[in-house]
């Protein structure tokens, strides 16, 4: 389990309203030290929201963010501010920064951290359960959406859910995109799969 907002991914400046809201809403940390990550609410008691998330370090180093940026983060898909899964990246939406954005610059750590937060905030409780148990990662909306839904599929049980962007990955570890995401969620990141998936189109 990992803290959701590790210092190494924290930008020097606030990421924005989303990050502020998340920080204010969630007190996150390992179950071993809940006192550090809980908030005492007057007339209520100790309020703790503890979720487990995959490793944010390998989100970058294993190329999970690169996969998301290239395959999901185009401006007509998740490279839009209003999306629940909002992906920043070099070839799509750039995060607002003081002094303007250098659009030719590679994806910044700040943007990668923001992508991570966006991803793990989709279904925090469900993701937490998957990370803790190591089971049923493909029930996550992240995976189900990426698989998409084909009503004419000869194998309906292999389908995910309706996704306006269609099928991005296929269910099963033979698919690099599936392997990239599910392996990372299972704390066994697969950089080769992520690289292959990122460059598939």
């Amino acid at each position: 389990m990992t803290r959701l907002f590790p210092n190494r991914l924290q930008g020097k400046r606030p990421i924005g309203a989303l990050a502020a809201t998340l920080l204010a809403s969630f007190w996150i940390g390992c179950a071993s030290s809940p006192s550090e990550d809980c908030e005492r609410i007057p007339n209520f008691g100790l309020r703790c929201t503890v979720i487990a998330v995959p490793d944010p370090g390998t989100f970058k180093s294993a190329g999970v963010t690169t996969f998301l940026e290239r395959r999901c983060g185009t401006l007509d898909c998740h490279g839009q501010k209003g999306r629940a899964l909002r992906v920043y990246g070099l070839n799509g939406l750039r995060a607002p920064r003081e002094g303007g954005v250098d659009t030719a610059a590679p994806t910044t750590d700040e943007e990668i951290a923001s992508n991570f937060r966006s991803l793990v905030s989709l279904e925090p409780e469900e993701l937490s359960r998957v990370v803790r148990t190591g089971q049923n990662a493909d029930r996550l909306l992240l995976i189900q959406k990426a698989i998409g839904y084909d009503p004419d599929s000869p194998i309906p049980e292999q389908e995910g859910v309706q996704h306006k962007g269609g099928r991005v990955i296929n269910r099963g570890f033979s698919d690099e995109g599936y392997r990239c995401l599910v392996s990372w969620i299972g704390n066994k990141p697969d950089p080769d799969a992520c690289t292959a998936a990122a460059n598939a189109y």
């Binding site: 185009t74 401006l75 490279g79 799509g92 750039r94 303007g100 659009t103 306006k164 962007g165 269609g166």
Partner: peptide, 23 residues
């Protein structure tokens, strides 16, 4: 990058200055 799902070029490509976040 690729076209994700929208066949209109102008959904993303607009006149200069129209999209400050993706200049």
């Amino acid at each position: 990058s690729h076209i994700g799902r929208d066949g209109s070029c102008a959904t993303c490509h607009r006149a200069p200055g129209k999209r400050a976040e993706v200049t």
